[in-house]
Design a protein around this nucleic acid. Sequence first.
DNA 1: TGAGTGACTGTAA
DNA 2: CTTACAGCCACTC
Length: 111
Amino acid sequence: MIEFDREQFLKDVHDIVRLIPEGRVTSYGAIAKALEQARRSRMVGWAMNQSPDDVPAHRVVNSSGVLTGRQFFGGTRMRELLQAEGVVVNENKVANFKKVFWDPLTEMDCD
DNA sequence: TGAGTGACTGTAA
DNA sequence: CTTACAGCCACTC
C-alpha cells in the first residue's frame, strides 16, 4: 500500500513537463490525468510553483489555453518564451491551441 | 484548528 | 461572453 507522496507527485509532474517538446503546450488537467490524478489539477499548479528552473513551466496553460501563470513569470515573460518557441499567443491566450496542444498520455501510453 | 486562498476542471444556467 | 457551484488539496494565518 503506497500512500500519496507529495514529493513523488511533484517529481512526476516535473518529469512530464520536462518532456513537453518545443512549440507545444499542455494543460494542468492533462498532466494530472496522465498521473491518474485528474482531480488534482490544482496541485499541478502548485507543483509548477515548486518547479526548478529546468522545468519549462511556461509550456503549461489551463484547459482553455490561457496563460494563467504568466504573472509568476514576471509579466510577459511566459508569452515571450512561448512565442520564441513558435507558439502564437494572443495577449494571454494560446492561438490554435488544439494544434500546439501536447497530450502527455499520447507519449506515455506505455503502461 | 478552522477558515481563506489559489499557476484548475467540469457542469450548469 | 459571464456567473455560480462542486470537487480537489497544499499552504498560510
